[in-house]
Structure formats: structure tokens, C-alpha cells
């Protein structure tokens, strides 16, 4: 036995689960690595963590990690997570979803989880398309992009996940990508460290579908696109508008400390109980 095993083994399921389902060059495994590093640095007990997901490539993540894991129906990760958190508030609930899962079929649930400030951390891997079903357009597919269901280019405007969840009331909203991994590790750690509804959007390449349809090259080329086409919020603030034109901004956009849902519910129980006693 080696003297010191890589720490990741502690968090992965040993038997039967690997190799994973993700394509070569997919970004989802990198996000899983970030989540594991963030949790490792927080020193959390595996028994206390519930990873919940919906349906799609990203939502396959729970099968590989050795937490309490719940792979639900399409779009509903946050609704299942809400119930689990309410029934057992000690659980640290982490929802992993893709862009189609969280923004299309689960769009209503993420708006209301944000509004309630439900104590869940949502990690959304945004690869701009539905990978599992073969690369159809999603609500985050950029205008003009080709997918298997937009063969002549996407005509619908896309959702900005961060702006949407910020407006709906989430406590913490950040965007990172799988090229700037150390930054992403930090964002996820920060997201996991607070209360209320907390969102990290992680931009990731899908070379098999989106990349191929839009002639973005192989996985390495797509990683370079993330490097070139995104800019950190601190850097962006120093540059002129022309220089940041067309670039996606990374960074922590919202870091509020509004009271989370569970604490509000506990307060309600205390209040009505004291009124009943009177």
C-alpha cells in the first residue's frame, strides 16, 4: 500500500462505479474534483453530506462519490433537496445540476429555492447544451450557436444563471470555469461555507456535442477558449468596456448574509409555540 494515497480516494466509491460515464474532455469530472477538494478542506464528515441531482450528464455525479447520494428526476434536485433539508436540517445539502436540468425543466424550482433562500448549495455545470441526449439546445445555448435542435443556429436569447438567481434572492452567486480550477475550488468552498441558497455556475466544455457542432476543436481547444473568453471580475473592473467586450465575467457576484429558510422556520416554530403557551 502506498504511504500516502491521494486524498480523493476517501470521497470516491471503490466498487463497480468506475469508469465513469463522462466523455473524454468533458468538464464535469473537473467540477467533481473541485467539490471534493472544497469538502476536504472544510473537513466535513461524509455522513453529513447529501449530494442530490436531477437528470443529465452532471446529474450522474452522485453515483461516484461516497456521500449520502440522491439521483432524482429531471429538474427536481432542488425540490427533493428541500424536503431532505427540512426533514433533517443537519444534512449539508449539495445539489449538482446541468444547465438544462436547472434552467429549463427545473427553472421554476431554482427561482423558488432562490426566493426562499433555501439552505442548499447548487453547483450548476453549464456546458451550453443537453449532452446526455446528444447535444440539443438548452436555455444557456448562446444565440447563433448550432446544436442538434438548432441546425440553423439558436434564435432564442439565453439565460444568465447568475443574474437570474441573484434577482430571485440567492444568498451567494458565483461563476467560475473548469480552466481556472483553483479559483473554482475557492468559490465552491465559499459557497459551502454559508447558509441560505448558494449558487456556483461552472462553465465547462462539451467537446463531444456542443464543441463539435460549433467547430470549437478538441477538448484542449475548448479549454483554451475558456481561458481566452472569460475574465475575472477584478481584472474586468480595471479594463475599459471595449477590452472586456464579448468576455464572460468570472467571480463572486453576490455574497449576502440574509437569514436562510431553515432558520426562519425555526423562528416561526419558536414564536407560535410561545404564543400557544400564553
Amino acid at each position: 500500500m502506498p504511504a500516502r494515497l491521494p486524498y480523493a480516494y476517501k470521497y470516491l466509491r471503490a466498487k463497480k462505479k468506475f469508469p465513469h460515464v463522462w466523455c473524454p474532455g468533458c468538464g464535469i469530472g473537473i467540477v467533481m474534483g473541485s467539490i471534493i477538494r472544497a469538502i476536504d478542506s472544510l473537513g466535513w464528515d461524509l455522513d453529513d453530506i447529501l449530494m442530490v441531482s436531477g437528470i443529465g450528464c452532471t446529474s450522474r455525479m452522485p453515483v461516484y462519490v461516497d456521500f449520502n447520494t440522491l439521483h432524482t428526476t429531471h429538474g427536481r434536485a432542488l425540490a427533493f433537496g428541500t424536503g431532505a433539508k427540512m426533514a433533517n436540517p443537519k444534512l449539508k445539502v449539495l445539489a449538482v445540476m446541468g444547465d438544462g436540468d436547472s434552467m429549463a425543466i427545473g427553472g421554476n424550482h431554482i427561482i423558488h429555492a432562490s426566493r426562499r433562500n433555501m439552505d442548499i448549495t447548487a453547483i450548476i455545470v453549464n456546458n451550453n447544451n443537453y449532452g446526455m441526449t446528444g447535444g440539443q439546445f438548452s436555455p444557456t445555448t448562446p444565440q447563433g450557436a448550432k446544436t442538434s435542435t438548432t441546425p440553423y443556429g439558436m434564435i432564442e436569447p439565453d439565460f444568465d444563471i447568475c443574474k437570474l438567481t441573484e434577482a430571485a434572492g440567492a444568498n451567494f452567486v458565483a461563476r467560475g470555469d473548469v480552466y481556472h480550477v483553483i479559483e473554482l475550488d475557492g468559490m465552491i468552498k465559499k459557497a459551502l461555507s454559508g447558509s441560505g441558497f448558494r449558487v456556483v455556475e461552472a462553465l465547462a466544455p462539451c467537446p463531444t456535442n456542443f464543441g463539435r457542432a460549433n467547430r470549437q476543436g478538441d477538448a484542449v481547444n475548448m479549454m483554451e477558449l475558456l481561458k481566452d473568453n472569460t475574465i475575472n471580475i477584478a481584472q474586468a473592473s480595471k479594463l475599459s468596456k471595449e477590452k472586456t467586450e464579448g468576455k464572460t465575467v468570472r467571480g463572486i457576484f453576490v455574497d449576502r448574509d440574509e437569514i436562510g429558510y431553515l432558520e426562519r422556520y425555526e423562528e416561526l416554530c419558536d414564536r407560535v409555540l410561545s404564543e400557544v403557551k400564553k
Binding site: L50, V52, L70, T72, T73, R76, A79, F80, G81, T82, G83, A84, K85, M86, A87, N88, L91
Partner: peptide, 9 residues
């Protein structure tokens, strides 16, 4: 969905 999550917890 929520009550399934609740029951599992």
C-alpha cells in the same frame, strides 16, 4: 419531490 426527499431523510 420534497416529501420523497423528506422521507429519505
Amino acid at each position: 419531490s420534497a416529501i420523497i426527499g423528506g422521507s429519505l431523510a
